[in-house]
Every structure is written in C-alpha cells, then in structure tokens.
Design a protein around this nucleic acid. Structure first.
Lengths: 149, 149
DNA sequence: CAAAGCATTGCAACTAATTCTCAATAGTGA
DNA sequence: TCACTATTGAGAATTAGTTGCAATGCTTTG
C-alpha cells in the first residue's frame, strides 16, 4: 500500500518528483474495487468527474511510469488499448482468462504461478515488476455463436 | 504441425477458404527458428523478400484469424505492436520474461503453468487457444543504467 | 466441370491510441 | 530563497491496425 510519502521517496530516489497529478492518480487506483481496471481514457473521465482534471498526456506518461516502477500492472487484453490496475502482492495477485471474441474476462488466483515468475526473474537477475498468466480462449457463449470474427 | 490440407479442413469447416496467401503465411511461421516471432511489418518484409508479396491488410487479417484459430500466438511485449509465432504444444510451449526498458526477452518453459492454464479454461467452459506467462521486469543491464525511461 | 455465390484480396482512406514538441509551471536540493 | 531541471497541458504528429469497396478467385452444387 502506497502513501504519498512512500511514493515521494521512490520517485525522489530516482531523481523524479512527486506532483499533485501523480498523487491523485495513485489514489484513484488505490480506491478502485478489486477486479476493476482502467484505460487511460477511463482514468481521464474519472478524474474529470471527481473534479481533478488531468491532461491525457500526463495520464499516459504517469501510468507508464508507474507500471515501470511496479506500482501498476499493465494489462493487455484482446482489445486495442491497455488497461491498468494496482499491482497487488500475494494473496491478492491474480491472473486473467480472456475470450478473444467478446473480451469477457475472468480473474483467478494461483500461488504457484507467482512462484514460477519470481524464481525465473531471480534466476536471470531481473528485477521483477509483474507476472501475469494470460489465457486466451473462447467463452461458451462465443463457441456457440455462428457469427464470424 | 499444420499442412496445407489440415489448414484447409479447419478453414472449410468454418465456412472459410484456403487461399495461397494463407498458405504462404503459415509456411513462413513454420519455417521460423524457434524463439523467433514476427510483427505484421516483419512478415510483410519477409514475404516481399522471398518473392511472395502480400498486402499489409491481408497480413493483419490473416494473423488475427490464425491467432483466433489457435494456430498462432499473439505476443504483446512492452512494445507498441504485436508479434506472432507458431503456437507449439508441450514440450515446445514456452513463456516470456521481458525487460520493460530495453525489451530484451528471455524464453522459458514450464509444464505446471500450462496445466494451470488448461484447467482454468476447462473449469470455466472456455475453449483454450493459448496461455502465456508474461513476466515484466528490468534486466541487469537496465538496473545499472541511470538513464531515465 | 461450369456457373453461382460469396469469402478474400489489395488499395487507399480512415481511426484511434499513444507519443511528441515546446513553452510555461513548479518540485527539490542547496 | 534560488537555480536547476523535471513535469505539465495543449495540440500536432505518429503509426499500428481497420475498413469500404470493386475486382478476384475458392468451393460447392447441379
């Protein structure tokens, strides 16, 4: 769980700065219900609505930065844009099963996958940011559908 | 391993057709060295070079189709475009460890992950196409780098 | 084995997500 | 408080990927 202070230290350690925008964006993600993930556009709208307008450029820059810091997870579903969510440690860490036709998404947990991920990164000397099992599949409903594409 | 005939049956079964373009594209992927994956642009260039020019539209349409059939895997690395590779069954099935800064990619195998993937899809009634563990991390070299971004 | 029916192709125009440019603003360490 | 420089916002630019459409060519059926 990040606070404004811990975020500030992590940023400052790397020569970066804590800005009101970054703090507000982190807050939005921390207050999100589990299983909710936002696109840049979603985040933009949420911020407009709650009275903290932040430009789209800044939003794109910030989520990318936070993903690289390991604070956010970048989710790439079978859509044409990315989604972001808070990167939770075990036991809240989860994975996604996605229908490539209708994009229905089901979350599931697995401790063993997290272990494989950590060990693999460690073995290669990489600093782990996030590990996610991505299952591409076709849901029951779409299997029955005759529609092409 | 797909042949022109098995590809034809799978396509025809769904009311689709085997075209020279689809056959050529499948061949390119089957002749690729293990661990190689192509972007649409890469594939376009490869085909130009080998004397089988195919339009970019057709390439995009074909790789998407083959990914949805489970023939190709769609890889989304920390770049801005997708990559494709043949979807190999166990024991050639593998996963990717990626440096989000320099995009260096390391492949690794794990039978247990494949099992978790199959079981999860089955449990939900989904028809499995592909499952891949995506590990986002920072490689040793980039950890040492002071450069931002 | 010819013809009908319709999936597919190539081209060019288009879309939309994300990045970039740059002047103005504002955290930070000294 | 000051100097330094990271960050922001606005809009322009980029670019991966999609789409409309007329021409082409698989496939099936009669």
């Amino acid at each position: 769980m990040y606070t404004a202070n811990s975020l500030k230290s992590e940023l400052n350690d790397r020569g970066w700065r804590l800005t009101p925008q970054r703090e507000v964006i982190l807050n939005v993600f921390q207050n999100l219900a589990e299983g909710t993930h936002l696109s840049a556009e979603d985040l933009f709208n949420t911020l407009q609505t709650q009275g903290d307008p932040i430009s789209l450029s800044t939003i794109y820059r910030t989520v990318k930065l936070m993903a690289r810091m390991g604070i956010l997870r970048e989710l790439e579903f079978a859509e044409d844009h990315k989604h972001y969510e808070i990167n939770q440690p075990y036991p809240n860490h989860h994975h996604h099963l996605i229908c490539v036709k209708c994009n229905r998404t089901i979350e599931f947990k697995s401790e063993s996958i997290l272990k494989v991920g950590s060990k693999t990164a460690e073995k290669e000397g990489f600093h782990l940011l996030d590990c996610q099992l991505l299952i591409h599949a076709i849901c029951p409903k779409c299997q029955r559908s005759i529609l092409p594409d």
